[in-house]
Design a protein around this nucleic acid. Sequence first.
DNA 1: TCGTGATCATAT
DNA 2: ATATGATCACGA
Length: 231
Amino acid sequence: MNIQSPPKNELELMQRARLIAGYNLSDVANRMSLTVPQNLQKQKGWVGMLLECYLGANAGSKAEQDFAHLGIELKTLPVNRYGYPLETTFVSVAPLVANHGITWETSHVKNKLSKVLWIPVEGERAIPLALRRIGMPILWQPTAKQELQLKNDWQELMDMIVLGKIERITARQGQYLQIRPKAANGKALTPAYNENGELIMTRPRGFYLKKPFTAQILSDFLVQIHPQQSF
DNA sequence: TCGTGATCATAT
DNA sequence: ATATGATCACGA
């Protein structure tokens, strides 16, 4: 496959991202000398990996932002025909142990969401993967209000983890940020504490953004570029 | 129909 | 097992 050099600055990254807006996934895959799978059932992260590759992200399973030198995280977002998110957005693994002293300010959630390059991609399963189009990239930073919302959810969920209530956490909690399993399968286990302070093994969890939150980001962006149509 | 819980691939 | 990238799929 072809290798892209990392973008030197934010403008270069944005220009690179804007170049593929309107094109479909096979267009980008061909350019990168990659083949498009029939579907995502066996390669759920393929779209994200493709755009990482195209944009020159520091590939690999390194921790923290995709473009660390720019302080930017890349997220592809599958959307329906109306531009509404089809899936929640994974943010980071939830720390179930050794989490004392972690605050919102020092959390991975805040770090990863401090600046995100969102790239909407058509995600309806009726559209062949190769023909799904890529949308306009959105460089986003949380507003004070959004950050407070995320911080509140994060604090509530972290409080429960620290109190050993991990098994009581459900995806229904949190207004915009939720915790759900995040693992290869149901057999994967990781250490955590129960309500008696005893070490137990449980399914790894991750923080995810609920759809209404990312929907708001997309909506706000449209209002920015079409202020006269913001009815 | 849709959200929650479960799951898939790959690199380290 | 943990991190990256996420979507699948079934029960309510």
